[in-house]
Lab assay of single mutants.
Amino acid sequence: MAAGGDHGSPDSYRSPLASRYASPEMCFVFSDRYKFRTWRQLWLWLAEAEQTLGLPITDEQIQEMKSNLENIDFKMAAEEEKRLRHDVMAHVHTFGHCCPKAAGIIHLGATSCYVGDNTDLIILRNALDLLLPKLARVISRLADFAKERASLPTLGFTHFQPAQLTTVGKRCCLWIQDLCMDLQNLKRVRDDLRFRGVKGTTGTQASFLQLFEGDDHKVEQLDKMVTEKAGFKRAFIITGQTYTRKVDIEVLSVLASLGASVHKICTDIRLLANLKEMEEPFEKQQIGSSAMPYKRNPMRSERCCSLARHLMTLVMDPLQTASVQWFERTLDDSANRRICLAEAFLTADTILNTLQNISEGLVVYPKVIERRIRQELPFMATENIIMAMVKAGGSRQDCHEKIRVLSQQAASVVKQEGGDNDLIERIQVDAYFSPIHSQLDHLLDPSSFTGRASQQVQRFLEEEVYPLLKPYESVMKVKAELCL
């Protein structure tokens, strides 16, 4: 049975990233139509530049190519590739079939990587351009969430054990800070992308030097003109047959890092959902379990974690691919890159769409948070109580021993009897502590235990987050809708 299948058929496997999760716009960027249309555009740009620099290419040939950029006979191309065992030459023939007058000058002087690699770089750039505003929107939604809850005390956790208090907004800023680093890295790697350009079979530009009869300047002009037509500021000066596969490492490393950030955020949300302090959106008709109707599973956060793990592992592909590119190139890269580049971007696209949807509907339960604080705060307040007693004339050592005994009794009630923490009640009825009984409410005010959390939130948002989001103001209103 021949390899390949009808990918629109229910009898043929289709990647869930495309069929179930990723956005239509990201799927289109990695589609065959987008790819092969870009090949034709690159052939047109090459012909236009070659004509401008004096090669015998007519206006009629150029116009014929322009008129057929979208006229792609995919069936013919597939048949040609089956016959020739070469995808680029299959599309040269297919393009030439609908451009008979231009057929002889299509791909003039070029090698397969002229269309293959340059198209990949265009796709990487455009895919990054799709991700950047999506990530900015996630940051914006979380920034709104953090600002609104900047002063809401909550129990902090280290080692997932109760620690000092923080605020809900401050905790959210930990998430935002990681995503801001990801946004900066995505922008950097996007701006650092260079075009492969017009380089020939081993990167020496020998074929173009021959076409222009040894004119170095025209060869350099050709490279520059096509690079500018493709919208790049610069091209690699040095290439082998391909652009260095280190570029793929750079791009997928940034995406993998984004995956790590999203995994951490969504894990926190899942843990908070278990504590009943916070939940992701839950639709009115949504079913959490087929057997347990009360369940409210954090399905979206779980999906993000599941896909983020996949995204983090994909960076190993370009690392290994770059390491086995012998001399000017081997074909070890080809099949692998067809999979890992598309999957990385479709996965990143999915987790950003999902995280935006989550961040637009996060639900906080202040009463649950308050109750958990009441359970733990008495123990945390013991040092403040000791200091207040010393100020009232008591002995630190005597007070410490009193607190120690009462704390152990209260802990026994919590752990052995399943009761509430009654340390404060014990202190309130103990005559030894009568000098500070009137101060206990103040000493137990949760806001006095959150330090500068709310001020940190305000400063972080104003100095770091809002300036970073400013270039994306025009796209901030787009909502994230999930079908599944």
Rank of each mutant, 00 (worst) to 15 (best):
D6C: 06
H7Q: 14
H7T: 14
D11E: 13
P16V: 14
A18R: 09
R20A: 00
P24Q: 09
P24I: 15
E25R: 14
M26D: 03
C27F: 10
F28A: 08
Y34F: 08
F36T: 14
R37N: 05
W39Y: 15
R40K: 06
Q41S: 08
Q41M: 15
W43T: 01
L44W: 06
L44I: 07
A49H: 02
Q51E: 06
G54H: 09
I57L: 06
D59F: 09
E60Q: 13
I62Y: 05
Q63T: 10
K66H: 11
N68S: 10
L69T: 13
N71M: 11
D73K: 07
F74N: 14
K75P: 12
A78Q: 15
A78V: 10
E79Q: 12
K82C: 12
D87Y: 02
D87M: 00
D87K: 00
V88G: 06
A90K: 02
F95E: 01
C98F: 12
C98K: 10
P100M: 09
K101N: 08
A102Q: 05
A102E: 05
L108Y: 10
G109N: 04
G109E: 01
G109Y: 01
T111A: 00
S112F: 02
V115N: 04
G116W: 02
D117W: 00
L121F: 02
N126Y: 11
A127C: 08
D129T: 12
L130V: 14
L132E: 11
P133Y: 15
P133K: 14
P133L: 14
L135Y: 08
L135R: 02
R137P: 14
R141A: 15
F145A: 07
K147R: 10
K147M: 11
E148M: 10
A150W: 05
A150R: 11
L152W: 07
T154P: 00
G156E: 02
T158I: 00
T158M: 01
T158S: 14
H159M: 03
Q161W: 00
Q161C: 05
V168L: 09
G169F: 01
G169H: 02
C172W: 06
C173D: 04
C173G: 12
C173V: 06
I176T: 08
L179V: 11
C180N: 12
M181E: 11
M181W: 09
N185L: 11
L186D: 01
K187C: 09
V189F: 14
D191E: 12
D191F: 06
G197D: 03
T201W: 02
T201A: 03
T202V: 07
F208T: 04
L209E: 11
F212Q: 06
D216T: 11
H217V: 11
K218I: 06
K218S: 10
K218A: 11
V219C: 06
E220S: 14
L222G: 03
K229E: 05
A230E: 04
G231R: 08
F232L: 13
F236Q: 08
I237W: 06
G240K: 02
Q241G: 01
T244R: 00
K246L: 02
K246A: 02
V247W: 09
I249V: 10
I249D: 04
L252G: 13
L255Q: 07
A256E: 02
A256V: 07
L258K: 06
A260D: 02
S261P: 04
V262S: 15
K264G: 04
K264V: 03
I265M: 15
I265N: 05
C266L: 12
C266G: 09
T267M: 15
I269L: 06
I269Y: 04
R270H: 01
L272C: 07
A273I: 06
L275S: 11
K276A: 05
M278V: 12
K284H: 09
A291M: 02
P293K: 01
K295Y: 00
P298K: 00
P298Q: 05
P298W: 01
M299E: 02
M299K: 02
E302Q: 02
E302T: 04
C304T: 10
A308Y: 03
A308P: 03
A308Q: 03
H310A: 07
L311W: 01
M312H: 05
T313F: 08
T313Y: 07
L314F: 13
P318G: 11
T321E: 00
A322R: 03
Q325V: 14
R329E: 00
L331V: 08
D333S: 00
D333R: 00
R338S: 02
I339Q: 15
E343F: 00
T347D: 09
T347M: 08
T347G: 11
T350I: 14
L352M: 12
N353K: 12
T354M: 14
Q356F: 02
N357I: 07
S359K: 07
Y365T: 07
Y365S: 10
P366R: 09
V368D: 04
R371L: 02
R372Q: 05
I373W: 01
R374C: 06
P378F: 03
M380G: 02
T382G: 05
N384I: 13
V390L: 04
V390P: 05
K391M: 06
G393V: 06
G393T: 10
C399P: 04
C399F: 04
V405C: 14
S407K: 00
Q409C: 09
A410K: 07
A411G: 14
S412V: 15
S412G: 11
V413N: 12
Q416M: 13
G418V: 03
G418H: 01
G419W: 07
L423V: 04
L423N: 04
I427Q: 04
V429A: 11
D430A: 13
F433E: 03
S434L: 10
S434M: 12
I436T: 05
L443D: 04
L444V: 07
L444Q: 04
L444S: 05
S447V: 15
S448N: 15
R452I: 10
R452L: 09
A453L: 02
Q456Y: 03
E462Q: 15
V465R: 03
P467F: 07
P467Y: 06
P467M: 11
K470E: 14
Y472D: 09
Y472S: 14
E473K: 15
S474G: 14
M476V: 15
V478I: 09
A480V: 15
C483S: 13
